[in-house]
């Protein structure tokens, strides 16, 4: 592969073309492409949110991506989980996603784990620079928050149900910042998870795409992120709102 050296940066001809529209952005440019090639993001959950997140991170030229999911592709997933095709039904999501993402961009190191994220999973994400929570239940979200606090990793959280969703960035890598549990404490999942409720197909695309965008902004240090803010999205009424999150001095997880 031919490699061009521009201001000591090394980017192949293929990648100059592949990432051309990012290189043309002042906020990313050639330096940003090289920074992304050094970065590693872990995506936990490969459902409605995880699919667009992983797809945009892979097309953007991230160096390493870790995918964690313990589920199999089902027919009911195909309406919104855009990495999977009909013939993937019955396959492990982590493996099906790995295959599709490798075809989309063979330059990325993809690490896939078919397992549930538990108390013992911190070794899977400890080498990542940033963690994206694309799971579907409070218990796992709370656990991801706790582990990212102990590993000191920034966390991009997204959630979606019916036609509404939320995105927030928790700087669990920095001191004295609010965490997920400052916002959500002791939720009962029956009230909020998607098992028995509908989800608009494009909603998970919107929320997942915003999560991927926040991750890229944090790693490339441009713009303004949803750090310590909760974005509320209501697609039914095309309504958006940002709410500030303060550190809860009584938070049982981060105080």
């Amino acid at each position: 592969m031919k490699v061009k050296k521009i201001n000591n940066l090394q980017i192949s001809d293929d990648n100059l073309l592949r990432y051309n529209k990012h290189i043309l952005l002042d906020e990313i440019d050639l330096e940003g492409i090289e920074v992304l090639q050094q970065k590693h993001i872990a995506v936990i959950g490969l459902g409605g949110l995880g699919c667009p997140i992983a797809q945009y991170l892979v097309t953007s030229g991230l160096g390493n991506i870790t995918l964690i999911d313990d589920d199999y592709v089902e027919s009911t997933n195909l309406q919104r989980q855009i990495l999977y095709i009909s013939e993937d039904i019955g396959k492990k999501k982590a493996e099906a996603a790995y295959k599709r993402l490798s075809e989309i961009n063979p330059n990325i190191n993809i690490h896939q784990y078919y397992e549930r994220f538990t108390e013992n999973s911190s070794s899977l994400i400890e080498s990542a620079d940033l963690i994206i929570d694309a799971t579907d239940n409070f218990k796992t979200r709370s656990l991801i928050n706790k582990i990212t606090l102990s590993l000191k990793k920034p966390l991009v959280m997204g959630a979606a149900i019916k036609m509404q969703g939320q995105v927030a960035v928790f700087r669990n890598d920095l001191d004295d910042m609010p965490c997920y549990n400052c916002l959500y404490d002791n939720l009962i999942d029956e009230d909020t998870s998607c098992l028995n409720q509908g989800v608009l197909s494009s909603l998970t695309g919107v929320i997942g795409s915003i999560q991927a965008t926040e991750a890229l902004k944090i790693l490339l240090c441009f713009g303004e992120t949803l750090e310590s803010k909760l974005l509320l999205v209501d697609l039914k009424y095309s309504s958006f709102r940002i709410v500030k999150i303060k550190k809860d001095p009584e938070c049982r997880v981060c105080k």
Binding site: L49, Q166, L187, D191, T192, S193, T204, R241
Partner: peptide
């Protein structure tokens, strides 16, 4: 700004009520 349920309101406050979301 996000507040807990015991937050005391004052004249002129703008209050937003929104649902928790944990699905994905």
């Amino acid at each position: 700004e996000y507040v807990g349920k015991d937050f005391k309101l004052k004249h002129g406050d703008e209050i937003a009520f929104f649902p928790p979301v944990t699905g994905g």
